[in-house]
């Protein structure tokens, strides 16, 4: 049994007063800056966030892994979560589709709103949440079945009544894999290269028609060419999906993401447009991390 439904008021961390309201930050700004995570930088209009995370705390047993995280994830953008190992970025990612509930002895409080609805409210169905917020993992993990069955499987168990063949083709096209596999759809997925397997996993995630795709180091096990294909795929996908990616590779974050959040020891230190974060970080700690001076 997980203890995840518990919302212990008594466990509110005393440090929570430090982060600010919009994008909880733990350092004082080095320079005055006009930083907004809410407004579209090109039009200046308010964009309703796809995901809104409010004062999120998370514990593994007694270990306080996430401390008062507040952030908005804009729709149809790629948001990268970066930070040193153990900073909480994968934990935060898993909070976005209730995957952490599957881990024993964890506790959470705070909010994760998907299109304005709290995914942790009592009535919310975790299976439905995970259908709307899909996940791609670090290592490609196709099922030991054919390429076709890998993609069709999720839709079938979700009771998809439409044209499955069309769905498979569309998903494979979106994952930029169709041209490479269209003539061998009924061959084993394990025969594909690592990069192709990862794009197959992306296609499998897309086939259940999610709104948000979470990616936990999706290219870290791939060679540079396969990485480049996966990155191109991610860039294409943001037209239709909201993407949140955890990456250790800062150049990858700077190449593919629109916004980047830097986490350190469970806190959100800084979140900003990616070009800003990598050229003019507002916090000393962010600068030290992105320039490789620590972490």
């Amino acid at each position: 049994m997980t203890d995840n439904s518990q919302t212990p008021d008594s466990r509110v961390d005393t440090d929570q007063s430090v982060p600010d309201a919009t994008n909880g930050t733990a350092d004082q700004p080095r320079r005055a800056a006009k930083v907004s995570n809410d407004a579209d930088a090109t039009t200046g209009e308010e964009v309703r966030p796809k995901l809104r995370i409010g004062d999120l705390n998370f514990w593994y047993g007694d270990t306080h892994a996430l401390k008062g995280i507040t952030m908005d994830i804009a729709p149809n953008e790629v948001t990268a979560l970066i930070g040193p190992s153990g900073c909480g970025k994968s934990t935060l990612l898993r909070c976005m589709n209730r995957m952490n509930e599957l881990i024993q002895g964890t506790t959470m409080d705070g909010q994760v709103m998907l299109d304005g609805q709290d995914i942790y409210e009592k009535e919310a169905d975790p299976v439905m949440v995970r259908r709307r917020v899909g996940m791609v993992f670090q290592k490609p993990n196709p099922f030991p079945k054919t390429i076709y069955k890998n993609v069709a499987w999720g839709a079938k168990i979700n009771g998809y009544t439409g044209d499955v063949e069309a769905l498979v083709e569309r998903s494979l096209r979106q994952a930029a894999l169709w041209d490479e596999v269209k003539d061998r759809l009924h061959t084993p997925a394990y025969d594909l290269s690592g990069g192709q397997q990862q794009r197959l996993c992306i296609a499998r995630t897309l086939a259940v028609e999610p709104d948000v795709v979470l990616m936990d180091e999706p290219a870290s096990a791939l060679d540079p060419i396969a990485t480049s294909k996966v990155e191109e795929t991610i860039t294409e996908l943001k037209k239709d999906y909201t993407i949140v990616i955890v990456t250790h590779n800062m150049q990858q974050a700077s190449r593919i993401s629109d916004r980047t959040a830097f986490l350190y020891m469970g806190r959100l230190i800084e979140m900003n447009r990616t070009d800003q974060l990598f050229t003019r970080p507002q916090k000393d700690r962010t600068e030290a991390y992105v320039t490789g001076r620590f972490g």
Binding site: M250, Q251, S254, F278, T279, R280, P281, E287, V290, T291
Partner: peptide, 9 residues
């Protein structure tokens, strides 16, 4: 080195 931030500046 593909420098960023203050190194890039």
């Amino acid at each position: 080195h593909a420098p960023v931030a203050v190194d890039l500046r």
